[in-house]
Design a protein around this nucleic acid. Structure first.
Lengths: 255, 255
DNA sequence: CGGAAGATTGAGAGTTCTCAATGCCTGTGG
DNA sequence: CCACAGGCATTGAGAACTCTCAATCTTCCG
């Protein structure tokens, strides 16, 4: 009954029954959205906040030339900008990558949810993590070689997926085509393909038919220069939550 | 008497006397900081929010190899992440670029300020604009040629500076060395230097002794693919504020 | 005036892109 | 159940872009 969004927020802050009830109510009516549909477009009047219950989406910007840059991947449990409503126009679009279950929370309802201190804390924390990811992307694009960059993104996606229980041992279902990944990494699909081959030949990871397999976690961490503390370990959470998290993580790959 | 931070926030939302008083109180005791001092470091316990009243600073991350990626430039009037305190560790550092006047607002005081709805709106709006800049940087690094990227950053800095009254006709004082700019653009200082020469020879702009001169605004906008609506025009502000803004902008370069 | 930091320039090495062709897999219609 | 179309993935080869290394200039200061 508990959807992935709620599961995720529970890791961000301690939520009481009241918080949870409000959250459940806000997310009780998801819509089914097919693949490749824009949830909102650059230039639109912003406002609603979207929550992915199932399926993947991406934020992106289009260049005049028609190429696009992906700004973030949204996986099940993820939501997006809480306050974009303060801007006059969306500066990016959001599009589904797979058939999805999406909740659209109107600005007003967001404000209501934020009246719960626990929820506000959880949602702001989630947003801080997302911002941290953006910073890491900037650093990746600016200072990492393409191989490091690819490996780093895969580590990020793997860990994020694991945090919401989407992994199976050393593998994750990643419904991202090479074109999509290339658009997020600031490189060509052709070149990405060659880098993926390198990583495969290195024995670090494999990407096949929408599935990412971490062949050698240690190698991946080294190649990517992936910071162990990146993402979840940066969260400031209560001891109880941490304990639960430790249990959930034990037995999984030592990434 | 009114510092640049207050001036900036007044453009973001309508502030009443009470808001302004609280803001003035919070920023009444700036500290003088010399050049090249870290205000906070990666790994530190986050919490305080910094406001630049005078001088420039930058957010950055260091790579194991010692190279760094600059994540944002902070100019007079700018402040930084409101909610980083929710993370367990800073994931980036902030360093002054010039001697500066900096206000350090403790987490608790930030919360108090946010109790004023007007201030909360203004500060969240400022943060949304900053996030929009980060998205633009990602897109720049991923999809723009180095020439476009350089031109785009210069347009961004020029317009931001103009918004807080730091420009003089077609020029701005930019205390940014080529090494610094290169670190923010994901390129080498050597290559940046060549690109700057190209732009100079193109007659679009010149960068000399810490001063940026927009030689031909129209050319710059074209080379950069700079979106007129980027930054300030994206702000959703009240008609009165817009009117004041229009007056302030009239007569300035048609960027 | 000497030193130090920043800006420029040249030249060769490496990386990434572009263009183009080919192979692989999946869903659909016959 | 098979053939085919369309979307992805893979590979090759040459062009273009950036980086690295090194030397030279300039500017700013003590």
């Amino acid at each position: 009954m508990e959807n992935r969004f709620i599961t995720k927020l529970k890791r961000m802050a301690e939520l009481n029954d009241d918080d949870l009830k409000a959250l459940a109510k806000a997310t009780e009516k998801p819509r089914k959205i097919p693949t490749k549909r824009d949830l909102i477009r650059e230039g639109d009047r912003p406002g609603p906040c979207f929550v992915m219950l199932e399926g993947w989406a991406c934020k992106y910007q289009l260049m005049p030339s028609g190429t696009r840059q992906i700004l973030a991947f949204m996986m099940p449990g993820d939501s997006c900008d809480l306050h974009v409503g303060l801007l006059a126009e969306m500066d990016h679009s959001i599009q589904t990558i797979t058939p999805s279950l999406v909740v659209k929370i109107e600005q007003l309802e967001v404000v209501e949810l934020m009246d719960h201190p626990g929820l506000a804390k959880a949602m702001y924390t989630a947003q801080m993590v997302d911002e941290g990811i953006m910073r890491a992307w900037i650093t990746s694009m600016g200072r990492r070689t393409s191989r490091e960059r690819v490996a780093h993104l895969m580590c990020e996606l793997y860990v994020r997926a694991r945090n919401v229980g989407l992994t199976d041992q050393d593998s994750v279902t990643l419904p991202l085509s090479q074109a999509l990944l290339a658009d997020s990494l600031g490189m060509t699909a052709v070149h990405l393909n060659r880098v993926l081959r390198e990583l495969r030949e290195l024995g670090a990871m494999e990407l096949q038919r929408g599935k990412l397999v971490i062949t050698d976690a240690k190698k991946m961490v080294i190649v990517a220069g992936f910071d162990e503390k990146y993402l979840h370990r940066r969260l400031r959470v209560s001891p109880e939550i941490l304990r639960g998290q430790a249990e959930r993580l034990s037995g999984s790959a030592p990434l």
